[in-house]
């Protein structure tokens, strides 16, 4: 599950933030802000993508670097949000 999410998120980032340029390695743990890949508009694009692709509902409190600043964090966040709520 997580690898599939990572793969889709990576494809989105390469296409939208790197404009198809995958010549530079993009690590799972690499910070998207520190690497200058996303700006304030980019975050909103990313949120829109996650909601549409994975059907996760993103509250304001979810939109923090701890959840979204790397491929690994995004994948873990989406996996968490996608888990069925258990009693």
């Amino acid at each position: 599950m997580s690898d599939a999410i990572k793969s889709q998120v990576r494809a989105f980032i390469v296409e939208n933030f790197l404009f198809g340029d995958d010549s530079t390695p993009l690590g799972d743990e690499q910070s998207l802000i520190e690497s200058d890949m996303v700006d304030s508009t980019g975050i909103l694009e990313l949120v829109s993508f996650l909601e549409e692709r994975f059907g996760v509902a993103m509250a304001d409190a979810d939109i923090v670097p701890a959840n979204l600043d790397s491929i690994a964090r995004i994948a873990a966040f989406v996996a968490r949000k996608s888990e069925p709520v258990s009693g």
């Binding site: 304030s40 975050i43 304001d60 939109i63 923090v64 670097p65």
Partner: peptide, 16 residues
């Protein structure tokens, strides 16, 4: 006047 900034959480504002 920057709508994308208006929608950011404090965590992201601090990061940017």
């Amino acid at each position: 006047y920057l709508s994308s900034l208006q929608q950011q959480t404090p965590e992201y504002l601090a990061a940017f």
